[in-house]
Design a protein around this nucleic acid. Structure first.
Lengths: 186, 186
DNA sequence: GTCTATACGGAGATAGAC
DNA sequence: GTCTATCTCCGTATAGAC
């Protein structure tokens, strides 16, 4: 196992804090304390706190798709992959104690004041939807369904479930949307 | 028309800033500047910035239900009321330029660090769902549907549509869930 | 009740020794 | 490349005159 580089450790610590506490509530001083480095080192690797935010988002997106691929490798077939996606997001929420979606949270907090961030999140969610769309298309080869509508339906149900599980601090909403999606994909 | 009291003006200005910029990104100094009062006056009316946050949430919840009642008064019948709810939330997002849901945003930003806030939002969303539930029950008297599932379905679709419209800065998701709900309520 | 002045801490970021 | 020391600004909140 390779030794973790300083830059990687900074991103890892900052990501965790941004996610759990929020971006604005996380100070540079806290990051350097938890990463056990000096402030000079941080600014040697990142030009600003905003630069660190970008690295955070890039890393989270990369890991999102990578982790899902690993999670869904256990099953085969488009229908199973879609349920695996629901299960993946449920497991992520459980393991983070229902801290919510990285991308929704950062847009809700930073929002319009940072177009780079909101643009990145928009693209990320679009990629998610396109992934669902491919699975739905695969499935539709043998079933007569409205691919557009089913794709949007699944996507929006998952987004609603993630937000609701964050608010309620439980995973009930994921169990519910599973039933709803089952009804959409007989 | 009654003259707006100082306290009301403070809440109005703070609410607008909290919603558009976020809670942490809004400073006391900005609030008093836009409300055109001195800092001493603010702390005469509110004991802290957190106190102001509470007032903001209480006001937004009150107006949420009041505005929806006015909006939905135009139509009658449970099915129509539900579509009126979708239309209400769509209109709210349009008029705020897709700034998102007050309650989701504040939980995403403040989250676990303020249990009073997260508890308030949880209760608020529960009230929304109970309102939907009553409408679904009314509708179910003449139709054979699974009330639990349909209620959750509508609720989660709306939450997903609100979040997605915030991210995409358009109201497409509301038009889509309308079709989906139509399919649920023949 | 509203004002001005100010306390006090922490924010993000930089300088310069090593 | 990493360190310590420090700069400047702005955050929330308080004191006390009027």
């Amino acid at each position: 196992m390779k030794k973790e580089k300083v830059r990687e450790r900074i991103i890892r610590v900052a990501s965790d804090l941004f996610y759990r506490q929020g971006f604005n509530s996380t100070g540079i001083n806290q990051i350097i304390a938890e990463a056990d480095i000096a402030i000079g080192s941080l600014y040697n690797h990142f030009s600003s706190k905003n630069d660190l935010l970008q690295a955070y988002l890039v890393k989270e997106e990369f890991e999102w798709f990578k982790s899902f691929e690993e999670h869904s490798a256990k099953v085969s077939g488009p229908r199973e992959k879609i349920f695996s996606l629901v299960d993946y997001r449920k497991k992520m929420q459980l393991s983070s104690k229902f801290a919510g979606c990285h991308f929704i949270k950062i847009v809700a907090e930073v929002g319009d004041s940072n177009p780079t961030v909101s643009g990145f999140v928009r693209q990320h969610k679009l990629k998610q939807k396109e992934m669902i769309r491919k699975l739905v298309d695969d499935y539709a080869e043998n079933e007569n369904i409205d691919e557009d509508l089913v794709t949007e339906n699944i996507f929006l149900l998952i987004e609603g479930a993630v937000v609701t599980s964050m608010i309620n601090k439980n995973s009930d909403s994921f169990d519910q949307i599973q039933k709803m999606i089952e009804a959409q994909m007989p």
